[in-house]
Design a protein around this nucleic acid. Structure first.
Length: 640
RNA sequence: GCCAUCAUAGCUCAGUGGUAGAGCAACUGAUUCGUAAUCAGUAGAUCGUGGGUUCAAGUCCCGCUGAUGGCUCCA
């Protein structure tokens, strides 16, 4: 009996019935057979030794494919679980999936794993790999599966089996002395794993729910070669070097103080200077784009927060109230109610709309101590917030403008790649379905008009409205959420916002909350990591360092310094009694974009030598010519 | 909040029950130097904090504060 196999390029070929993907690959080429890790048969991912019985389409997956990585990592997690079970037979296994970078496995073990344990487990894994067990798939009935895992005492697996849909084919994989419930597919055998490393241990709740028992999780990663593992570990190292917390300290940009409290940022002078530049730019552009900049209080009475609904749905993130004249006041977690007050201070006509209030508004939110993380997750931060209040017919156009404005901002800071998500109505929501549909459609239209590619996150909207989020990709290709643009059905209703329409009747305006950079703290953290602390000229706290070669050149250096300052270049001079190499090293470590080096030659020719950070000597310039170059670079916000 | 790890000089780190150490930074002196570290010297710590065990605690135990990695990825 012959069957027909269709390949991704559309070509077809006949094979004996019962042939496996591996055998087909072997016929094509030995190299291919060696490289593939799994296959897709029609719409189902299968093991390489799966017997093909019918005409099918076939795709091979290699490690470099996402599907292949998943299989590879998932298989490694099974090897790890087997190793753990060999050491600790009483441990119960929970789940062990592949994740974005590697895999983990959760274990129910009385005492947590130590780093020592990790080494032991790694050695045992290597033994399992050397023993080269087959990942043997068996399809079983529900009762058989329950029987097997009951005998093994694997309670978590039983829970999982009971939750599988009734029509699901249940499968188990046998790996030597280890049996696991698993849908598959897997590698053919354990020695396909060439290089692996266990990275960290942590606690993790069963199914991510804090009401459940805390399990012990081990994370790891694996690759088809030692070299790839090495490259990956180096990349981790590189990320660590540009960690904003480390650079924040090294470059003296910001700090946290135990005496003050967790998650409360102090911007040191250099960080403050950068922030000020960002804020100036932000304000200028907002005025240009038709926003009004407002300033509002940081606390407000409890009634305000009751009306807004924050005390109902956001109280978990709010700090306890303080009593002032017998009244409860809350420190603000958001700026919206205050902006709404300004809107409501007058009767508004449709002719005034859209009204756009912008504020660099500092807010305070309670974040659980364990989730705080440098500048990325803090308890007090400043949103670059705005509220756009418009008529329903203006909505779409306003969103188009907003998207354009957001992308302009992000690009100004050197981000070129974005991921855009549209989140739609969740299960719990306020407002009418039809209104949601209309608003969601407007957001969609705006994205289409802006020709921005986006993904839809079904049901991931906030309860008060659909939203668009923009994530930026940084230099290491990690994504960070910055811009969020949220439609709000709730607050205009709660606060009874209105405007007088063309028909001389009262209408309810639409309102959009938006933050472009997100929070200044978080955005600063992202910027630091994106640039690895090497800020572009327009943002660098010190733009130029003047370095005289010896004491004889101090006077000439000072003259240059004062001229630079006169031209509003942020410059410093190094008057230390050190050798030139040492001073250059210092300036390089401080990541100052340009160095001006002056000695006898420069004095004689009345010029300067310029050295660029990370690049080296640029040669000789006239001072005026160099300043022009700097001005152009600042103007263009050049990032390279 | 929960699990784990951690907190020693300004910074990075050593010190596993018996007299607190190093490198860098700082300061002083010498050196006056051409594109990523000149040499020598000086000073700097109630070992995060509060309690306990012990003849003796940086070190062992408990509380607190703060930091770090996780706690979303569904066999």
């Amino acid at each position: 009996m012959k069957i027909k196999i269709t390949f991704p390029d559309g070509s077809k070929k006949e094979y004996e019935k019962g042939i496996t993907p591996l055998q087909i690959a072997e016929e094509i080429s030995k190299g291919l057979a060696k490289e593939i890790v799994s296959a897709r048969l029609n719409d189902k991912e299968v093991d390489l030794n799966y017997k093909i019985m019918y005409d099918s389409s076939l795709i091979f997956y290699k490690f470099k494919d996402d599907e292949g990585k998943k299989v590879y990592w998932h298989s490694t997690s099974h090897i790890m679980a087997q190793a753990v079970k060999r050491f600790y037979p009483d441990v119960k296994v929970a789940i062990g999936p592949a994740i974005e970078n590697g895999f983990y496995y959760d274990f129910d073990k009385k005492t947590p794993f130590s780093d020592n344990d990790l080494e032991k487990i790694e050695e045992e894994m290597q033994r399992i790999i050397d023993e080269n067990f087959f990942f043997e798939r068996r399809e079983v009935t529900r009762n058989e599966a329950l029987e097997i895992f009951k005998n093994l005492g694997e309670d978590y697996k039983i829970e999982l089996i009971n939750e599988l849909p009734s029509e699901e084919q249940i499968s188990i994989y046998v790996l030597g002395d280890f049996v696991d419930l698993c849908k598959g597919p897997h590698l053919l055998s354990t020695n396909k794993v060439k290089a692996f490393k266990l990275l960290k241990v942590s606690g993790a709740y069963w199914r991510g729910d804090e009401k459940n028992k805390m399990l012990q999780r081990i994370y790891g990663i694996s690759f088809p070669s030692e070299k790839e593992l090495k490259t990956y570990l180096e990349k981790l190292n590189e990320a660590e070097k540009r960690d904003h917390r480390r650079l924040g300290k090294e470059l003296d940009l910001f700090g946290f103080y135990e005496e003050v409290g967790a998650g409360l940022v102090h911007w040191h002078p250099k960080g403050g200077l950068i922030r000020n530049i960002i804020e100036d730019f932000w304000k200028k552009e907002h005025y240009k784009a038709g926003y009004d900049i407002v300033y509002t209080p940081h606390i407000g009475k409890s009634n305000l927060w009751e009306t807004s609904g924050h005390l109902g749905f956001y109280s978990e993130n709010m700090y306890a109230p303080m009593k002032i004249d017998e009244q409860d006041y809350y420190i603000r977690p958001m700026n919206c109610p205050f902006h709404i007050m300004i809107y409501k201070s007058k009767l508004r006509s449709y002719r005034e709309l859209p009204i756009k209030y912008a504020e660099l508004g500092t807010v305070y939110r309670y974040e659980r101590s364990g989730v705080l993380h440098g500048l990325m997750r803090v308890r007090g931060f400043t949103q670059d917030d705005a509220h756009i209040i418009c008529t329903p017919s203006q909505l779409e156009n306003e969103v188009v403008k907003l998207l354009d404005f957001s992308i302009f901002f992000l690009k100004s800071f050197g981000f070129e790649n974005f991921e855009i998500f549209l989140s739609t109505r969740p299960d719990k929501f306020v407002g009418k379905k039809e209104d949601w549909d209309k608003a969601t459609q407007s957001l969609k239209n705006a994205l289409e008009i802006s020709k921005l590619p986006y993904k839809i996150d079904e049901g991931e909207g906030v309860f008060y409205g659909p939203k668009i989020d923009i994530k930026v990709k940084d230099a290491l290709n990690r994504s960070w959420q910055c811009t969020t643009l949220q439609f709000d059905f709730n607050l205009p209703e709660q606060f009874g916002m209105k405007y007088i329409g063309e028909d001389n009747k009262e209408h309810r305006p639409f309102m959009i909350h938006r933050a472009l950079l997100g929070s200044l703290e978080r955005f600063f953290g992202v910027l630091i990591e994106h640039y690895a602390g090497n800020f572009p000229l327009w943002l660098a706290p010190v733009q130029v360092k003047v370095i005289p070669i010896s004491e004889n050149h101090f006077e000439y250096g000072k003259k240059i310094l004062s001229y630079l300052k006169e031209k509003e270049i942020r410059a410093k001079i190094n008057l230390e009694n050190e050798k030139i190499g040492y001073k250059i090293r210092e300036a390089e470590n401080e990541k100052i974009p340009y160095m001006i080096i002056v000695g006898d030659k420069e004095i004689e020719n009345q010029n300067i030598s310029v050295r660029k950070h990370l690049k080296g000597d640029l040669g000789v310039f006239l001072l005026g010519e160099f300043i022009e170059k700097l001005k152009r670079e600042v103007q263009k916000k050049t990032t390279k």
